[in-house]
Structures are given as C-alpha cells and as structure tokens.
Design a binder for these strands. Sequence first.
DNA 1: TTGAAAGCGCTAACAT
DNA 2: ATGTTAGCGCTTTCAA
Lengths: 329, 329
Amino acid sequence: MARHANVSVGTVSRYLNGIIIRQTKREAIDKAIAALHYNRNAAAKAMRTERTNMVALLVPDYDEFFAEVLASLTRNLADEGQVLLTHKHEGDPKTLAMAMEFFQNHRVNAVVTPGVSEVRTQVEALVEHGIPVVFFNNDVPYLKVDRVFARNRDISRRAVRHLIDLGHRRIGHISGGMRETTAQDRQAGYSDALRDADIPLNPNYIAGASWKRQDAYSAIERLMQLDEPPTAIFTATYVLALAVIDYFREHDIALGKDVSLLSFDDVEIFRQMSPGVTAIAQPTTAIGQAISEIVLGHINGIQRIAPRTVTIDCSIILRQSTRPPRGNG
Amino acid sequence: MARHANVSVGTVSRYLNGIIIRQTKREAIDKAIAALHYNRNAAAKAMRTERTNMVALLVPDYDEFFAEVLASLTRNLADEGQVLLTHKHEGDPKTLAMAMEFFQNHRVNAVVTPGVSEVRTQVEALVEHGIPVVFFNNDVPYLKVDRVFARNRDISRRAVRHLIDLGHRRIGHISGGMRETTAQDRQAGYSDALRDADIPLNPNYIAGASWKRQDAYSAIERLMQLDEPPTAIFTATYVLALAVIDYFREHDIALGKDVSLLSFDDVEIFRQMSPGVTAIAQPTTAIGQAISEIVLGHINGIQRIAPRTVTIDCSIILRQSTRPPRGNG
DNA sequence: TTGAAAGCGCTAACAT
DNA sequence: ATGTTAGCGCTTTCAA
C-alpha cells in the first residue's frame, strides 16, 4: 500500500496518526487508501503500541440500574476516545472468568465490574498485569481495585426510618443474595433503623436472601402468613418489589393502603404504576461519571497507585405506596 | 518466556494451541507460565491468524427488546467460542459510524445491527472487507447483508383486526419514526386491517411518527381532542404506549373500559399493570438464535454468498386493555 | 515431536 | 519532512 503511493511506510503511518506531511504525498496516500480500500489493522497497532483504547464493562444482565450506569459510562468514555465494550455473563462465574481472561488478553485499558468473589483470582491477575479494575455496585474486600458505591447502608436506614415515622412497627425486609455486600448493607441499614427506634429486631420479618423474583414471591408469602404480618415491606431491589406487588394483587391487598412498600432502585415501572412505589434512587449518572473519572485517571497516568473508593449518596423518592398503617391514620 | 522453559517458541505456541507435546516439555512450560504470569497477547495472535472470535453488536440503547435479543445472542455465540461485544450508540450516526470503523479495524467476525441508512457507506465497507453484516429489527434495502426480521406488517394487521373484531371503528395509530421500515411496516399493517374491513382510512387518526415518548404524548393528546376521538389506539412500540397510559391516567380515561390500547412489544410493565396491556410479542429468543445461526454459518464457512433473509412470526398476547368500545358491549 | 526462522502490519528510533 | 529498519508476540512453514 505504501508502494502504491510511492512513499515509505513510515510516512503513511505518520500521516495516519495525524502528523503533518507534504501536500503531494498526502494526496498520493489518500488516493492509495481509496484505491486499495485500505483499512488499518487495529491488532497490529495495539501490539506495537501496547495501548488499545478499550474499556471493558462486565454485567450479569442489563437491568435498569446497569443499563443506566452503562449509558453514562459510554458517553463519558467516548468523549475521551475510549470505546466501552460490554459483556453480559448472566451471573455465571465461569463465563465471567472467561470474559476477564479474554479482556486481559486483549489488553483493555480497564475492566469495570461488580465485585464477584468467585473470580478473585482473575481480578488479581488483571491488577498484576497492570490493568486497573473498578468495582461498582457490589464489593469484594481486600482486592487492590478502585471502587464506586452507593451509600447503601445509610440510605436504607433512612428509608426504613421513613416507614417508622409513618407509624409502622412491624416492618418486613425482603433481602437480596446475602453473599453480596449490596444485600448485606441494605439489610444492615434496615436493622440500624429499627435499633434507632428501639424496635426489637424480629428475625421472622426478614426473608428472601436472593435476587430472584420467585424467591421473593415465596418470601412475601411467608411474611404475610405470619400471625402478625408486617404492615410495611422494604425490598432490597426492584425485582423483589415486583414479586411483592404480584402477591398483593393476587391476594387483594391494597398497595399503600393495606400494606406499605418501599423498594431500593427507582425504576420506570414504579413511576408508572398507581399507586406509585416509594423508592430509593441511585444516581446512576453520577456513578457512571465517577467510574469514568477513575478509569480515565488511570489511562492518563494521573491516578495514584493507592486504590480509591468513591461513595455516592442516594435519595428517597416518595410516592403513594408508603402511608401510615391501617387504624393509625 | 520460551527461554525460561528451555524450549522453542514454536513448541510453546503449539502447546498453547492444544497440540500434543512431550510430557517433560509440557511441565516445563506450565512452570514457566506460572512463574512469569504469562499471558497470551490476543492482538498478536489476531494479527497473525487473521481471526478474532469476536462478534460485534451495535444497539441504540438497551431497551427491553434489544436486551432480550442480546441475551439470546450472547448465549448462542458463547457456545461456539465467540465473544459478543456490545456497543451502544444512542442513535447517533457519528458514534455509530465510529463504532463500525472500530470493529472493522479490529477484524471482528461479524457485525450485528439494526439497519441505519446514515451508515450505508460503513456497512458497504464492512461487506467489502469480508466482514458479514446482519441487520435485525430495522432494514435498509439494497445492501448485501443478511437479515432477520419480525413479520411486522402481518402481525400489525392481525392486531388491528382484533380491535375491529371487538367492534372498534375509530382506531388511532401512534407510529414510530417513519424513516424506519419497522415503523412503516407497522403502519402498513394498520392500514391493511382497515382496508380489509372496509373502514375508510382517516389520516387524522394517524399521529406520532417518532420513537420518542414525549412526541407520543403530544400525539395522543391531539387524537383525543378530535371531535370524534378514537375508541382504540395501536402504538408502534411500548414506549409510545407508556405515553398513552400517562395521558389516560392524567385525564381519567379508563384503560380498556373507555379506550382500548394495543401495543407492539410485550414488556414486563404490560404484564404487571392492571389492567394488563394487550401486546404483540416478538420472539426475541428465536430472533437471537436466527442471528447467531447466520453469524456462525459465516464463521464456519457454510454460509452461501447470497444474503439470506429470515422472517419470524410474532404473536398477540391478549390482556384487559382491549375490550369492545363503550355502548357496544 | 521439535527447533529455527520468516513474516503478519504496524510504530518509532535513527539517519538523512 | 521523509526513508530505512528493527521489532512488538505470535503462528507456521521448513528441516531435522
């Protein structure tokens, strides 16, 4: 291709990389590019330069939270010439491990992922090879990675306090998978609030321990069949709340009126329903921005070696699913 | 690294590629890998072999339809050792064009994307360079690509016929962006059904022409302020239906009872609402599977040169949002 | 089965 | 500003 334009390969390379060259050569190269349908080989370039302009994002699925963080991240990285490559692993550690190896082999500039304890080794390998890793949403401790998290525990505590302020005393919690800090922290916030209000913690009011919708359905079923069922429910994520809503509808329990519901994660459907569902909103844009700042810091060499943890505040969006308990209003 | 194991680089390469070598060498190499934290360079490998095991998927966003197709595709490709790299471009042709160039430079095995007329040139470039392109969801004609589409027109016709069968005569249509075949076909199906039933086509009953929620809100507003407002609405996608539902709620119009609603795309929220929304379900799993079959066909060299178009049937999920018109039931 | 060596397409250092 | 050349890490001949 350099031959076709009658110039040296070096000149072509320079031109392609934006270095100024003589007008005549420029035109010759342009013509050769068009004639030969020339197309740069990214692999060769990456091999030579050891830089790829790729950032990997690993998610279990594209639920609303991840999709929103992803959107924010894509935009912020694109501004700096980085391409975000997303890979979905459906929560399967094997697939995830393979994806991590894949991205390591491809020398991406960074890997962004919720912490997953099963792939500790792979994360360590990445870090060892100088590929920065950023955890968000869920943590796995003792790894030398950067972290961006919502203040899960604090906002959960405030959310449950809101229920207590409305007059609720029997408050149920449907928790997420308790191997994950996200679920642990949200449950801890629940406990904090009860303790703050001197309400004894009743283990029977805690159920679920899974992120799956059908497990949440069994959980709410059990809670509502107690002799003294809860008058309010706090769920650790929106999918669990959907199961609760299912159950309420099927058993003619009026949302808000009969039993209050407050959920983590503010999603479209909560706005759309009537009554609307009171929810904890994670600022997904801010989370995406924080992640991209860390990533870009690493890429531009500004980032200090010591891992950084960014914690982000959430807010509570009040809707009609939280009201004072029956016979108290 | 070959030095550390006291074997030649060729042997190492062979071993890494699964060719049988002597036991002693194998152990030596294993030890060297561990000691040096050896990590294969995918770029070098790709450069040499001209094959990458990567398939690119380009989407404007992760709405429920795309997310489901994506899930199916990821699984099917993973079974064959292909990694799906997803990139979201938010409908911006510039970002999309850049992404296409990026993936072309990286020599992905295939590019899967809804057809977008603004990037014709880039698609042609991909095809010219032997990278197969698969369109789904939306078409751009006259390009030498494979195609997987839902039978949009036919199912839309059947959907609107369902409304007619219930007794509706004044049926409104909120269309999608009319530059896209998806929107055109759905509107054509709407017209077909009216013609079948000898109902004159009233252009005033067609509104929208945009995929945006706020445009659909204006559209339904206009339709309902007509002297003879429609008694049933057919929307070209679920986002538009959400705007209709908004409008109905704000104006105390009872969904199904006062005005019927039927939407393209069967999403979670339609199942969850009460009354549920009658919807056209695209078989996303089948779509993903059809795409992956075509892609794998190309990769394994089975695919014939002539582009193939696969058309997939949809079904209508009946719920309570479609009922006979008032004073007719 | 293995070692030696060539070469994939590119960039960067060096020389001019 | 430009030509020349080495070499990135890998696979794949060719010989042995």
